[in-house]
Design a protein around this nucleic acid. Structure first.
Lengths: 224, 224
DNA sequence: GCAAAAGTGTTTAACATACACCCATGG
DNA sequence: CCATGGGTGTATGTTAAACACTTTTGC
């Protein structure tokens, strides 16, 4: 986050993005390691000041693209954090976003500005700069609840997946176990996914049918 | 909204508040009439720039207090509007809030800065400045949906009310009719309200029992 | 005694929940 | 042939929805 002098008469705006994915059976969030004091060695969400010539949404997309190389993924405004002393460099208000990306083939990018970029398990976060711990808590909570009444899982899944993989994604994020038969019944009744003419291969057990989403567009539903 | 020069390198922040009430059988929103060009004669939500020394929440509370004289009412952050050209006076991002107040005894206050302050029916809005029409749409939508899964009605009702008045409040905001028996069964099963030892008086029909909320604290419920 | 709103239960349909066994594959 | 996860149906309980008449008051 660039330096902002206190002499500004009005608060200025940054945008921070909590980027989530599900990988290796865990919900993960993307963090970058900071260099500058007083936060050196601490971790933070990707973010930065909003430029005069770009919208706030656009600034969030830019952060996402620069840090992960992805675009056109699910990105939603989360909440605006406007406490007076949340940033020691000046009066900065943060418009936080959350993004969801599938767990496969994401190559992380770092820059000279930061020491490192990494996925962290949501259950095992390092020490965080600014109020980013709070932002992650709010984002996690929003993700859990939106999973129940929208179809946003589609943005966490690969193109093709088995019903078990889909169920596991729900279980990992909700932190609860679901009944297999009831889950399948519900998902299929919602008419969101279709069977593709393929089976999973290479496992020492009965291969699973693969499915894909009929359309990958945000929709309010009654899931859980 | 004070003038902001375009020379600022970063976007600055304002806060606008959509204040709702239910009165005379209608959902109303509070608007102020603007004097300065290019918006003279148009109406806008109460709002203004966030000062360096106050939080964004605090700025919203201040707007609410200055325009209506009320405090300690329901106030929730709604959404942040960050398009580049939403404000002709400069690069201003608006953190919008929505507030709910009971329909009784609110005295509106105006200031030299504005021509007038008035309640407008949500179904009959005048021409609005900035992107405030959009803000009101989002706020109205949020209000409708939160009514269904939280107890926020309490902030629109007077201390004591009849079940019919409560039902009418829901109907006005939702824009639908509800079944009297089912409504009462549901409301009473939620254990949110208690009968007070009084009856409505002065009407040419059977007097209604009055109720009040057991506690006026935000709570997630399953209402509609 | 009439007009107007208050108050009150039951039946039916839809949906959520609980629960256990056989199937197809790789090794 | 065995270990592993895939796949399937029914019975029960809970909740939502539909629906009409009697009661109490002021005038």
């Amino acid at each position: 986050m660039a330096k902002v002098e206190k002499k500004y008469k009005y608060a200025v705006i940054a945008s921070d993005v909590a980027i989530f994915t599900v990988k290796d059976g865990e919900l993960k969030v993307l963090l970058i390691e900071m260099k500058k004091k007083p936060f050196s060695g601490m971790w933070a969400l990707p973010g930065g000041l909003v430029e005069v010539k770009e919208s706030v949404d656009r600034a969030a997309e830019r952060q996402l693209l620069v840090k992960t190389g992805v675009k056109n993924v699910y990105l939603e405004q989360l909440y605006t954090f406007g406490e007076v002393n949340r940033d020691p460099f000046g009066r900065v208000v943060s418009v936080a976003y959350f993004a969801l990306i599938p767990g496969d083939n994401i190559k992380l990018k770092t820059t000279k500005e930061y020491a490192d970029v990494k996925w962290y398990n949501i259950s095992d976060l390092p020490k965080l700069a600014y109020d980013h711990r709070k932002i992650i808590d709010v984002a996690y909570h929003r993700l859990q609840s939106k999973l129940g009444y929208t179809n946003i899982v589609y943005s966490l899944m690969p193109r093709e997946f088995s019903l078990t993989e889909l169920q596991e994604t729900y279980e990992i994020i909700k932190g609860t176990n679901l009944d297999k038969r009831n889950f399948r019944k519900k998902v299929l009744s919602l008419d969101l996914i279709k069977k593709v003419d393929k089976m999973a291969r290479g496992s020492a057990h009965r291969p699973a049918s693969l499915y894909s989403f009929k359309n990958r567009k945000y929709k309010v539903i009654q899931m859980l």
